[in-house]
């Protein structure tokens, strides 16, 4: 129901933008929109595992930054593109593991830990960035990637497989994002790990008493979150053909916003991977549509903030309404039971 409401909003937005703006309803625009949504969506997808488990991860932006620099450096060794992407995923997963271990083993709070590690990862990005002398004392320089097999991964389908028709304008990252979103939906809904994630997000005490290893599930959640941030970063760098140490700043909040707007509860236990997907599309569609109306950029920030507040209020009201509905049904059922007796 909540997901349908968001999908409805997305469709209404698209309809309005298509009718009112000249350049919204075309393949080129949907290609751009889907690429931007895919990047945000991959971050949100990873984050959904942490949020559904009742946690929060503020280090996604830092991971994007450091992985971008590492992938950029790795690609200069002439490494095949696919290996660079795998390297990005592994690095992201490693940074996620560090988060997970700090939270679950050292017992630190998620908010403070991931805030700190996010800053730390951003610093590592600066540390590993290219310098003119190759030494730490050297001046930072920007290096364009020339590794063609890696750059191809950031390109459009037409450049990769010579695809024709509707697919040719879309990016590989978009397709991977959709496939992963569907797959993660099943991971969350149909596997023991997914169900345990919901359990610790809904009621951690009850989950623990039922034998769920909370620390392990949480750690895996952080690893997945880091891996997805690494994947998004690796593809983004391939698309941009260079990495910059300022990448990633504030992305974690956009990803959290996408999750919340999509219907993943900040308190945990609600939502799924498809919610993260829808939320990302929603936010990116609004931004894309606003550009078409020549509206100053600050309005898009204001609107994004308002949307997040509205989504949170909507969630709270919707949860309250659903609870009242359940109670009323239960009352009616018990009344009918009493009548029957």
């Amino acid at each position: 129901m909540r997901k349908l409401a968001t999908v409805g909003f997305v469709l209404i937005l698209m309809l309005v933008f298509s009718l009112q703006a000249d350049n919204f309803f075309n393949l080129r625009n949907f290609s751009e929109l889907s690429f931007n949504a895919a990047f945000l969506g991959l971050l949100a997808l990873g984050l959904s595992f942490v949020m559904i488990g009742g946690g929060i991860d503020l280090s996604a932006g830092g991971i994007v930054c450091v992985v971008a620099i590492l992938c950029s450096r790795f690609s200069f060794l002439g490494t095949p593109g696919i290996v660079v992407v795998v390297f990005g995923v592994v690095c992201g997963a490693f940074f996620g593991l560090c988060n997970g271990l700090l939270v679950s083993r050292a017992g630190l709070t998620e908010f403070v830990t991931t805030l700190a590690t996010g800053i730390l990862y951003q610093g590592l990005g600066l540390l590993f960035a290219f310098r003119d002398t190759g030494k730490l004392s050297g001046t930072l320089v920007s290096m364009g990637i020339t590794n063609k097999s890696y750059l191809a991964l950031g390109g459009r389908f037409s450049a990769l497989f010579g695809a024709r028709g509707a697919l040719k304008d879309f990016h590989l990252m978009t397709v991977i994002w959709i496939v992963l979103a569907v797959a993660m939906y099943f991971v969350l809904r149909r596997t023991n790990f997914g169900l345990r994630t919901y359990a610790i997000g809904s009621h951690p005490k009850a989950a623990e008493m039922s034998g769920v290893d909370i620390r392990r599930v949480k750690t895996i959640g952080f690893v997945i979150c880091g891996a997805f941030a690494g994947l998004a970063s690796a593809f983004l760098v391939a698309n941009m053909s260079a990495a910059n140490a300022s990448l990633g700043s504030g992305y974690e909040f956009q990803a959290i916003a996408a999750c919340v707007v999509g219907g993943i509860a900040l308190g945990g236990g609600k939502g799924d991977a498809v919610c993260a997907l829808i939320g990302s599309v929603f936010l990116v569609t609004i931004l894309n549509g606003l550009y078409k109306f020549n509206i100053p950029t600050y309005w898009s920030y204001i609107l994004q903030g308002v949307i997040i507040i509205v989504a949170t209020v909507f969630d709270a009201s919707f949860a309250s309404f659903a609870r009242r509905l359940r109670e009323r049904r239960a009352d009616r059922a018990s009344g009918e039971e009493a009548m029957r007796l």
Binding site: P80, V85, T146, K148, S149, L151, L153, F161, I176, I224
Partner: peptide
């Protein structure tokens, strides 16, 4: 998750084998 990652990586590998053109900077 492992199976999915394998599929994704295989797709990427196929993609990176023979790019017909590049958007290199």
């Amino acid at each position: 998750i492992a199976a999915i990652l394998a599929i994704v990586l295989a797709t990427s590998a196929l993609a990176s084998c023979g790019p017909k053109e590049s958007n290199a900077g």
